[in-house]
């Protein structure tokens, strides 16, 4: 029991927690932007797969790491454009289109991977982002190492939360975006196109999801393999609900979740095989469901979420 508590004081545990949180933070912010504009983006799992592959493949083909991040973001935005076109002006079911985008993006990625690397059995590795300790701050015990000796992509993840929060609450674009998700007719009355705002939000959100996927191949596992997203996208959708559609709360949720994930891995080693390892692996998914149940009663969805908007219609 003492050992189980000791884990919480280990620096390596908190370092791992922040690392595990990073891709979730990107993708959760992406989903949050989409949903605040009124569009549920269930393409997230597939778009993360695309990002993971696009980023990795750019570097594998000789590109720069940051070029990989950019390519991943652009690829994500393209799938976002497809999702947005089908769900916003055409008003198709966001559930069906989202699942369709996930199936489409995932299968297209696997097809491209097989085409590019036909005879590969072990996934080739790239040289990933290296930890970049921030002088001074990184020497604070535990917290310093956890927060300030990570890779640049992790810093970018935290910066993204700040930018998204600032943009949502302090800029006219953010106001239009939130209004598109609450009261689209009011946006139209201001002479702003709801369609434009929503498609833009889905594209930017999808780009962030793709960067979240790219984190996995470029800052965590160093290679691309099939089914590597492994439900992270779906967990991010739960995190958005858990964070009541607020960037700060969602960030907190992602870190809590990641800490729990890092904890279960260490607990698994501690249990010495008495409890089947699958039980530990189930925990993150079960925790997500539990979190949804806990917040469901007081969840205040963006009022126009999943409701297509037609100009001039009441």
């Amino acid at each position: 029991m003492d050992q189980a508590l000791d884990i919480l004081l280990q620096t390596s545990f908190w370092v791992a927690a922040v690392r595990i949180a990073s891709p979730l933070i990107f993708a959760t912010m992406g989903e949050l932007i989409c949903e605040r504009a009124g569009v549920l983006n269930l393409g997230i799992e597939g778009i993360m797969t695309v990002g993971a592959f696009a980023g990795w493949f750019t570097v594998y083909s000789g590109g720069d790491l940051w070029a990989g991040v950019l390519v991943a973001a652009i690829a994500g935005a393209c799938f976002g454009l497809l999702h947005g076109t089908l769900t916003v002006p055409l008003g198709l079911s966001q559930h069906v289109v989202g699942i369709g985008i996930t199936l489409f993006a995932t299968s297209l990625t696997y097809f491209t991977y097989r085409l590019a690397l036909p005879e590969v059995t072990t996934p080739p590795k790239i040289v990933p982002f290296q930890p970049l300790p921030i002088p001074g701050l990184s020497s604070i015990p535990i917290l310093g190492e956890a927060l300030f000796s990570q890779t640049p992509l992790t810093y970018l993840a935290f910066a993204t939360v700040a930018i998204v929060a600032w943009m949502l609450y302090r800029t006219p674009i953010g106001l239009a975006l939130r209004a598109a998700g609450e009261n689209p007719a009011a946006v139209e009355a201001q002479g702003i196109s709801v369609t434009g705002v929503r498609i833009g939000a889905v594209m930017v959100g999808s780009a962030l999801m793709a960067v979240g996927g790219a984190f996995l191949t470029m800052s965590a596992f160093n290679s691309f393999f099939f089914e590597m997203i492994n439900g992270r996208g779906w967990i991010c959708i739960a995190l958005v609900v858990f964070g009541s559609w607020r960037p700060g709360k969602a960030l907190l949720g992602a870190i809590l979740f990641a800490a729990f994930d890092a904890y279960q891995i260490r607990l698994q080693q501690l249990s010495g095989g008495v409890v089947p390892y699958q039980v530990f692996l189930m925990m993150p998914y079960a925790l997500s469901i539990l979190a949804l149940i806990l917040v469901a009663r007081r969840a205040t969805y963006p009022r126009a979420l999943m409701i297509p908007y037609q100009k001039g219609e009441r």
């Binding site: 497809l82 089908l86 069906v96 289109v97 369709g100 985008i101 199936l103 489409f104 995932t106 299968s107 297209l108 696997y110 097809f111």
Partner: peptide, 9 residues
């Protein structure tokens, strides 16, 4: 898989 997903959309 790509064809099936495309057909859905």
């Amino acid at each position: 898989q790509v064809m099936v997903a495309t057909a859905l959309l």
